[in-house]
Amino acid sequence: MKGVTRNALAGALLALLLGLAPLGAVAQEMAPINVNTADAELLSELPGIGPAKAAAIIEEREANGPFESAEDLTRVSGIGAGTVANLEDQVSF
């Protein structure tokens, strides 16, 4: 009988934790990163953007003005359409 009770409690706890999991995912969502104001460290947090590309983004915006859309990021060497597609909902301007 103790085993049945323990299994029932374990199952209920597991169901409760799984039910709360989406709340944790929502809490961890980040606001889009403004590529015209972000520093290299923040830009490096974007998928597909490491320290070298982050530095290149900053260099490009300083040399040629702000980015107006995600597609403008293709002005940066090494950032193509695939990277832009992955960033569209994670960046702002």
Rank of each mutant, 00 (worst) to 15 (best):
I79Y: 02
G82T: 13
P47S: 06
I49H: 00
M30A: 14
L23P: 03
A27C: 05
G82E: 15
P32I: 05
K53D: 02
K2H: 13
V76F: 02
E45Q: 12
A70E: 00
R75D: 08
A38G: 08
K2Q: 11
P51F: 04
S69K: 01
L13W: 08
A8L: 13
T37H: 08
L46D: 03
S92T: 12
D39Q: 06
E29V: 10
A31K: 15
Q90S: 12
A85N: 14
R61S: 07
L18A: 06
N36Q: 08
T5A: 14
S69G: 04
A56D: 05
M30S: 13
P22H: 03
E29T: 13
G48Y: 11
M1C: 09
V91W: 00
S77A: 10
A38E: 04
T37Q: 14
G48F: 11
L23Q: 07
E68K: 10
E45W: 06
Q28D: 09
F93W: 09
F67T: 00
D39E: 08
L18R: 01
G19P: 01
G65F: 08
A81Y: 06
R6I: 13
G19M: 07
D72H: 11
Q90H: 07
A70D: 04
I58W: 07
P32M: 05
K2L: 15
A81K: 10
R6G: 00
N36I: 03
G82R: 11
E41V: 11
P66E: 15
L17A: 15
A10N: 12
T74V: 10
T74W: 05
L14M: 13
G19H: 01
A12S: 10
P22V: 03
A10C: 13
F93N: 01
N64M: 07
E60W: 07
G80R: 03
A56N: 03
L14R: 12
T83L: 12
N86Q: 12
A70L: 01
L9N: 12
E45G: 11
I33S: 06
A70Y: 04
L14K: 11
N64S: 13
L9Y: 13
E62L: 15
A81D: 14
G65Y: 11
N7T: 10
L46R: 04
V91M: 00
M1E: 05
E45S: 14
V91A: 00
K53P: 01
T83N: 06
G11A: 15
D39S: 04
E59R: 09
P66C: 06
T83E: 03
I33H: 04
L42T: 15
R61Q: 08
S77L: 02
I58T: 02
A63H: 10
A55N: 06
E59T: 09
T83C: 05
G48L: 07
N34R: 06
A40W: 01
L43G: 04
E62G: 09
L46N: 04
A85S: 15
G82K: 14
I58C: 02
A15H: 05
N36S: 04
E29R: 15
P32R: 08
P51Q: 10
A10R: 08
P51A: 15
N7E: 12
A52F: 09
K2N: 09
E71P: 02
A12V: 08
V84K: 03
A15C: 11
N7Q: 14
G19I: 00
S44C: 07
M1K: 10
A8V: 10
E60K: 05
L13Y: 11
V76T: 02
S77T: 08
D39M: 02
E29L: 11
V84E: 05
E29N: 10
E88I: 05
